[in-house]
Simulated assay, not measured.
Amino acid sequence: MIHIRKGDYGLVEIKLGGDKLIEEGAEILRDLASKIDTKSMSNPSFMMVLCAKAPFTYKRDDDVYVIPITALRP
């Protein structure tokens, strides 16, 4: 979990890469998000699979971002 500000947060799953592992990571994030008590806290601002191997950064149809670790360099 990454805290942003004023109670906002994002969920992050780290995977080595490959379509199967990215799909597994997205499924874990969706499952975790479904268990959050939205009466006590807000929905996550974003969900992201951080992976070692992806050709580029993209947003999936289920609103999960896929980000290669190389995109995070300064």
Rank of each mutant, 00 (worst) to 15 (best):
M1T: 08
M1R: 15
M1W: 14
H3G: 14
I4C: 03
I4M: 10
R5L: 06
K6L: 01
D8P: 00
D8N: 13
Y9E: 02
G10F: 07
L11E: 08
E13C: 13
E13D: 14
E13R: 02
E13L: 04
E13M: 09
I14F: 12
I14V: 11
K15C: 04
G17I: 02
G18M: 04
D19E: 06
K20H: 10
L21E: 08
E24F: 11
A26W: 00
E27F: 08
I28F: 15
I28H: 11
I28M: 11
L29K: 03
D31M: 14
L32E: 14
L32Q: 14
S34F: 06
S34A: 10
S34W: 04
K35M: 10
K35V: 01
D37I: 05
D37K: 09
D37G: 12
D37N: 11
T38Y: 07
T38S: 11
T38A: 08
K39E: 10
S40V: 04
S40I: 03
S40Q: 06
M41E: 10
S42P: 05
S45T: 09
S45E: 10
F46D: 15
F46L: 12
M47Q: 05
M48G: 00
M48Q: 02
M48F: 00
V49K: 09
V49A: 04
V49F: 01
L50W: 14
C51P: 02
C51Y: 03
C51T: 13
K53Y: 08
K53H: 09
A54I: 13
P55T: 07
F56Q: 08
Y58V: 00
K59S: 14
K59G: 03
D61G: 10
D61P: 02
D62L: 00
D63W: 01
D63F: 15
V66S: 10
I67F: 05
I67G: 06
I69G: 01
T70C: 13
A71L: 01
A71K: 08
L72P: 12
L72I: 12
L72K: 13
P74S: 08
P74E: 12
